[in-house]
Amino acid sequence: MSAGTATTALRAQQDRGRKAAQNREKWAQGRTYISAVVVLIWCLAPAYWMVVTAFREVGFTYDTSILPTHVTLDNFNTAFDTSFGNRFGQALLNSIFIGVVVTLVSLLIGVFAAYALARLNFRFKYLVLGFILGASMFPGVALITPLFQLFTNIGWMGTYQALIIPNISFVLPLTVYTMTSFFREMPWELEESARVDGCTQGQAFRKVILPLAAPAIFTTAILAFISSWNEFLIASQLSSDATQPVTVAIASFAGAQPNQIPYTAIMAAGTIVTIPLVILVLVFQRKIVAGLTAGAVK
């Protein structure tokens, strides 16, 4: 076999290989797009259905046309209507109040622990981390029975503190854990540099560390607020009509007829509860994903 034919054969083979590779690439890209569309539909379709139903007239609750039909705003009035014993408006305020207090308390306490866990060396560090992580995985039902009895005995049933204190039990570990991961990745050398450049301890903290830590703290605050906002188990048992949060209000939402679930109004209420969260999450998407996954991979 001469060298020339070998080269030609090789070149032809390379050409074929390149073409096949290009085709594969195109085919792979196409499959990616199809998969992406499937994921989009899977994630968004049920949420879309909630919003569409929220804007549909009660008489057409079970209309199954995919596009919005019989559009109305009435359901949002019904959601806030108190004549059937629903207290959705009050529940919204309760959820905001409980969420804000739980978030602030957890951040205030947790930020110190997170700093220690991220920055300092001490014995039992991983024991403490393990304890805090274990606490966040703790089943709510294991808390509810003793708390139910305790709060009944001391007359706290249905009070705000009876809802806030158990919430802290799972929001605080989450806060500490998320902030610890964030703090670990902060460029703390800058604090030293600032000190070398003549800043006092206070100045270094205020002008260098605080601005750097602010996004981490803010993201943690969002995650803390969301988990408090979504809490249902404890609130369903320990709240009263006056203090119930939105999750409980929506779960027990009543209609005019006792045997008919007022779906359109519930979907309207669900939309109101969800939209601010979704907007918040989408705006701070990157940070939130970082916060959510922080503990798991780093």
Partner: peptide
Amino acid sequence: AAVLVPWAIPTAV
């Protein structure tokens, strides 16, 4: 962004 939507909706809802 879309995958965060189901996550953000409260379980009760």
